[in-house]
Structure formats: structure tokens, C-alpha cells
Design a protein around this nucleic acid. Structure first.
Lengths: 406, 406
DNA sequence: CCACATTCTTAAGCAACTGAACGAAGTCCG
DNA sequence: CGGACTTCGTTCAGTTGCTTAAGAATGTGG
């Protein structure tokens, strides 16, 4: 379950119901970059009168600005945009080896960024690490703190909390989503929201890439593990306990090798970055190609990137390892597409940022074949523009989105 | 896209917005069988005053009835139920070999039922077949036609329409969802809704089995093919083009045998009922066990049922065939559970009705193992109580549900 | 029979939206 | 250049769905 902590919703007395117009108007402008009032009325299904009134309020609050006009047959349309600086959000990605902090504006654009190594066991704990990073980020950017809506924290674990036995990094091991959100909210004074990193990447992509709510899409995220975030009808799919998107444990081979999760043939066990790196280290040729010989313990992501670089430079063994992995990932992606009728697959995260030149074509071949003999609808496969920081910006986007839908 | 045809919503002037209370109250009563007004207020989050007013209107309309009271410390609660006979819906399942018609009440209970063989090429066409069946069903049940809300038609194809190359039975081949809905609405005068049969089975199960909206669940449907319907947050997951739930084309073996869909290793190609029946017919031992020797062309479902009967009676070859199929189905079910964080899997449709004694345990072993070492949440696997008519009742439930959410 | 607890109803008010008419800001054309 | 026309946006009264607040109904225990 997603956790929102801090600032309880002020239940003003005498208040009617939650205004739906506000949400749909802001979301429509977000998705289209700029829109006039009549267009908003058409898109949202509201009357022009309702749009007019709601927009005036948004203008008064400074959330929206008028930017130019487009000529028509009669009175020209006045275009509306979100004011990027009107609202800010902090996004934090707690990955295994590194923590990324970003400050974004209302449109999801990154204002400033900060990267820190993940805290070791003796570094004074996770809370201090987070609070310091957030403070540094805000101080460096010099923005008005009052405009910051809150903090989104995402990690490579289900949003519903870490189940026992989960393979989590040491500095996250003793935390659950609920506790982390509450404690960090107390520490910083901001509302805090905790979510899975792949889901956040998907929401971030939805937000930043201006995907329309009519598209069902999946963001495949490869960091030190592999996960998927799914957005359908403009909403993140979280499942019964906030653990949807366990792409790494999709079965791609009935009697495949055992996985730490207790099952067999899981994608992660067959083709995950960790598996690939282990294979590269145990293969002398690949080891030499990727220059992994005299490095050790740098973390899976760094090793994976080295293998990808070598493959891109033409190293045959590294390329073979990646292509083998890509076969499995493509098959799992096909399952996602078939199960959820996804028409847009976005590859994101540092893993795909480094190796999309192998994974992208492989997934495309399997999921969106060029021949039209197959029955399937057309599926687009793209690589995220900011794959390395996708989760952190997604974390911020989650905060922005939750403020739309308050 | 789902198609609703007929009866355009009367847009009364001066009307405010769509009442959300009505929907949530009816849905809460549906899910709980009976509830008092205070309980409704607690469950729906509405105030007691709002519940009181809305319920009175529902009582006036006859949708809801008061049934008894429960003692408390003070004034006893008056319990409310849906009046099953207040609203009726017709559900039609157009399967490959047989068409099933059901008439259900507001709670989804079957009032009357009719089964007809699927029309051949020379039987005067699909529309006449449907119209005649519906007329016969209603005449036989002797209910007031005015209380019938509409007709739901479901078929073994995506709700979004039949893509070119789809392996559809002859009598459905020239139809698309849109056209069928419109034409049947003209023919019968009722609103018509066209949907995928597995999705309908899931909605039917959700409706009839009183699943709460907090559960994410998947209905696996085996008829002459194999599909999945997914319900999350009380809504059917349809995906970008209404083609979600293509469980039969989940990949369970990267380099498995080619499937007619153009891909490889699809569940249906490896373990679907058709594949299993073909295997049984080409295996002399299984052929003899199941008594398929002197039958031919009865359709996949009948042959599959014969194999299942033989296996249940102890026939080793038939059992082996089923258990092999179940291994693959279980792996694919595991993928669904992991991707969507489903906590309830329901087996339904004639295939699972005949062979759940093999598939149920196999899926349970893989998806809900008894040992708690795994990280996964507890998943329940059950067999539908009315697996054989699940899709037809689901079709009717879709009509009921769409009237809640109008 | 009278507190007391609890459930449900009634009454007044408010906020969000609707429809319809009107004002505003352009283009087009004689 | 001025008026018809087109399209955009606003104003205003009215309806509706819900809110809070108070009270009526209907039981139990003393």
C-alpha cells in the first residue's frame, strides 16, 4: 500500500465534494503541454463554463499561466500551460549502490540533481542520509521551500513493504515503506510517499513524456534487478498489495533454474543483470573484454555497464551474453503485452540505458514484429530519454500526481 | 473497446453531476449481501444522511428491499438487500461449438438458462440465432420484459474486435464487436454490450461470488482455448484496446514450439486444450483410455472433457497429458500473479470444470506454496462454483455493472 | 417509565456543475 | 471602414449531491 504521511487532508466544514474538474484540467494540460479553454472542455467533457471558472482559480493560484494565443476563425484561443516553477517536488531513488536525489518542477522537469553513494552500515543510518541529501539538494537549488509539495522515495522493493526473505540491500533491510515514510516525514516536515522504483519510473515516464491516459503502457526498469511499472487508464497498476510489476519473476522457462524467490525459470534468474554479471565474471573471455579482471565489488550496475560498453565496442562474448539475456527479457515483455494489452513499452533505468542497443531490437522483434500477419495490435518500443534518473524523477512525479488527486 | 448501443443516456437539463453515492451503495450491498445504513456509511465513506436519502430513493425504485433487523445496544439496524428480481439482464456466451443464454436477476443469480449448438454456415446467420435464443429464453421465463436492462454478448475474442488472422470459429468470423452490438441492438431493441469471454467470466465471478473491490483477482478461463480475465480495484482490466487477458499467449518457454499467433512458446501452443486433445488423439494409449477412437469432430471442449473424465477414473496416459499441461498453466499463472499482485485466482470455464482436480493443485503448488520461506503474499486458488456457465452469467453481470456505473 | 445508546431522518446550507444568454476579440467582405 | 459572422470565454440563475447539525425513532437496562 502506498503511504502518504504528514499534512492530513484539511477537512474544511461545509465543503462539498472533491472537485473533479481541477484534476482533469490540470492533467489534460500536463498531457498536452498547452491547451485553450475550449479544447479543455472538449477533452475533459466539462462545460466551457466550468472550465472557465476552474481555470480562473488555477490562474489566481499561479499553477497555470496564459502563454500566447492561436488564431481561429473568430476570437483567438488563449493557450494555457502549467507554470513549471509553481510547484516543486523532491524525488529520491534509493538504489542498491547509489542514492539519487532530484528536484523537479510541476511539469516533471529536473531543476537540480544530486547523487550520493548508498550509506554503509556505519554511516549513521538511512534517515540521516536522506534528510541530508534532501537538505543539500534544496539548498543548492535555492528555491522557495514553501513551494515544495513533498518528497517521494522509491526503492527496489514492493511499495507494500519488504516481505521476509526479500533480497534487499543492507541499508534498506530493516525498513518498511510505512515506517520509512512516517519517520522521514517527521524528520523533514514534508509529506512523504514511498513506492516501488519501477512503478515510479513508469509514472515518471507517463508524466514527463506526456503519455496520454488512453494508452496502456509498461516501463521495464533494469537497475541491479529488473522490474516493470504498469500504467493503465492514467493510473499506476499496484495490484492487491502494492506489489504489482514483479517482472523479474515472470516465468520464461517452465523448468528453468531455481530462483532465490523459491520458484523456477524466473526471468531474473535466467537473464537478470546480476546473473549476467556473474556469467561474465566466470567466463575468461568476457572478463577480459569487459575489463572486469582487476575490479571487484563495484556493484552489479557498474559491472553490467562495463559489459554493455564492451559489447557496444564489438566484444563478441559480451555481446553474446547480452543477446542471450535479451531473448528472455523479450519473451517476458511479450507476456506483459499479451496480458495487459500494452501498446507502449518504454525501456528505462541504468541497465537499459547502457544496453538498449541490444535489448530494444530484441524486444521489438518479439513484441512488435514488422510483418502484419500476426493478430497483435501495433506496439511501440522506445528507450526513455532520461533512463538513468527515471526512477528519481518518477518519485517526484508521484508526489505531483498525488497532489492533483488529493 | 466495449460497445454499448441503444438507449442514449437521457441528458436531463439542469442536472448536476453523476451521483457517486448510488453506485457505491449498490456495489457495497452487492459485495456484502446485506448491510444496514450505518454500515453503508462506514463502508462507502459517505455520511449517514447521504446514505439515508440515497437508500430511500433506491427503495422507492424497488432496487433495494429491507430485510429484517439486527439488534444493537440501541435502535436495531434495518438490513438492506438488493431485490434480485428488480432488474434482469440477459447474458449470451458465443463459444465455438455452443451458445449459452442465461437470464439473471440483479444479484447475478441465474433465473433461466438455454443452450443451443452454435449455428452452422447455413443456419440463417448469427443475428437470427441470437435473437431467437433471447426471445425463447425470455418467453420461457415469463418475466416482465420491461425490467430487462439489456443483453451482454461475450465471445472468445478480444472485446476490441477480431484482428485479422485471429483463429475464430466460422460463425463469428465476419463479425466485429462494434457491428454485432449495433446490429443486435437494432434487432432486439435492447442495449447490447460485447465483451471478451474470459473478462466476462472474471466480472461474473466478482459479481456472483461477492468478491470485495479490495481484492485483485484473475479468472483463468479454459474453454476451447485459454484466457484470463483480470479485475483490479473493482474494475475489469481491459488494456489499451480491450484485448487484455491474452493468457493463452503468455510465453512459458523462450524457444518453445511456434504458435499460430506468430510467436513461440505460447501457453496455448504448449498446453492449451486443443494441443492436449491433438496429443491425446495421436497417442494410441490415451485415445483408447478416453474413448476417442470412434468419435470425431465433436469439438475440442467435448474431447477435452473425455480426457479429463478418463484421467479422473485413473487412466494414466490421460492423467499424464493433463499434468503436463498443468505444469505450463501453473507457470503462466505464476507470471500473472507476479505481474499483477493478484491474491485470488479462480479457475473457471468448462475446461477447468472438467479438470480442476489436476490444474487446481498444480497451480496452487506453484503460486501458493505451503512453505512460507518465499517472499510472496498468500494467494488463494479456487474453482468457480458455476464454471460451465461462468461466461454467460458474466455477460449478464457486465450489463448489471454498466447500469450501476452509468 | 425513564435514562441511555444507537440508528435513521429531516432541515438548512454550500459547492460544483449545467444551460443559456451575453460580452469579447478576432476575420471577412462589401 | 463598418458591419456581419465566427469562435472564444464569461456571467448568472438554477439544480443537484452532498455536508453539518439537530432531532425523531426504536430499541435496552435500571
Amino acid at each position: 500500500m502506498r503511504e502518504t504521511v504528514g499534512e492530513p487532508a484539511p477537512s474544511r466544514p461545509g465543503r462539498g465534494r472533491r472537485p473533479a474538474a481541477r484534476e482533469s484540467i490540470l492533467d489534460a494540460i500536463r498531457a498536452s503541454e498547452q491547451l485553450s479553454r475550449v479544447e479543455l472542455a472538449a477533452v475533459t467533457g466539462l462545460t466551457e463554463a466550468a472550465v472557465s471558472m476552474t481555470v480562473r482559480r488555477l490562474l489566481d493560484e499561479g499553477l497555470v499561466v496564459e502563454t500566447g494565443r492561436t488564431p481561429t476563425g473568430g476570437k483567438p484561443r488563449t493557450l494555457l500551460r502549467l507554470d513549471p516553477a509553481a510547484r516543486l517536488a523532491v524525488g529520491v531513488h534509493l538504489d542498491r549502490d547509489v542514492t539519487t536525489f532530484v528536484l523537479t518542477g510541476q511539469t516533471g522537469g529536473v531543476i537540480s540533481r544530486l547523487t550520493r553513494p548508498a550509506p554503509g552500515a556505519a554511516d549513521g543510518g538511512l534517515l540521516a542520509h536522506l534528510a541530508a541529501g534532501i537538505a543539500t539538494l534544496l539548498a543548492a537549488s535555492g528555491v522557495d521551500h514553501a513551494r515544495c509539495l513533498g518528497v517521494g522515495v522509491v526503492w527496489p522493493a514492493p511499495a507494500g513493504g519488504l516481505p521476509p526473505g526479500w533480497d534487499s540491500p543492507p541499508h534498506l533491510r530493516d525498513w518498511d515503506a510505512d515506517g520509512l515514510g512516517r519517520r522521514l516525514a517527521e524528520e523533514t516536515g514534508w509529506p512523504v510517499l514511498v513506492e516501488n522504483d519501477a512503478t515510479a519510473a513508469a509514472v515518471g515516464e507517463y508524466w514527463v513524456a506526456r503519455v496520454g491516459p488512453e494508452r496502456a503502457f509498461a516501463a521495464l526498469y533494469m537497475g541491479s534487478g529488473i522490474g516493470a511499472g504498469i500504467v493503465a487508464e492514467g493510473r499506476a497498476v499496484r495490484g492487491g498489495h502494492g506489489a504489482a510489476g514483479e517482472f523479474g519473476h515472470v516465468c520464461v522457462q517452465v523448468d528453468g533454474p531455481p530462483c532465490w524467490c523459491g520458484s523456477r525459470g524466473c526471468l531474473e534468474a535466467l537473464a537478470g543483470p546480476r546473473t549476467l554479471v556473474v556469467a561474465a565474471r566466470s567466463d575468461p573471455a568476457a572478463l577480459a573484454e569487459a575489463g572486469l579482471g582487476n575490479t571487484t565489488g563495484r556493484g552489479v550496475a557498474a559491472d553490467f555497464a562495463a559489459v554493455a560498453r564492451a559489447a557496444r565496442a564489438g566484444a563478441p562474448r559480451c555481446l553474446a551474453l547480452l543477446e542471450n539475456s535479451a531473448r528472455y527479457v523479450a519473451a517476458a515483455a511479450e507476456s506483459v503485452v499479451n496480458l495487459l494489452d500494452v501498446d507502449l513499452v518504454v525501456l528505462t533505468g541504468p541497465g537499459f540505458a547502457a544496453a538498449s542497443f541490444v535489448y530494444g531490437p530484441a524486444i521489438m522483434r518479439r513484441v512488435a514484429p514488422a510483418d502484419t500477419k500476426t493478430w497483435r495490435r501495433s506496439v511501440t518500443v522506445t528507450v526513455s530519454l532520461a533512463a538513468a534518473t527515471a526512477s528519481a524523477t518518477g518519485a517526484a512525479a508521484l508526489v505531483l500526481q498525488s497532489h492533483l488527486r488529493r
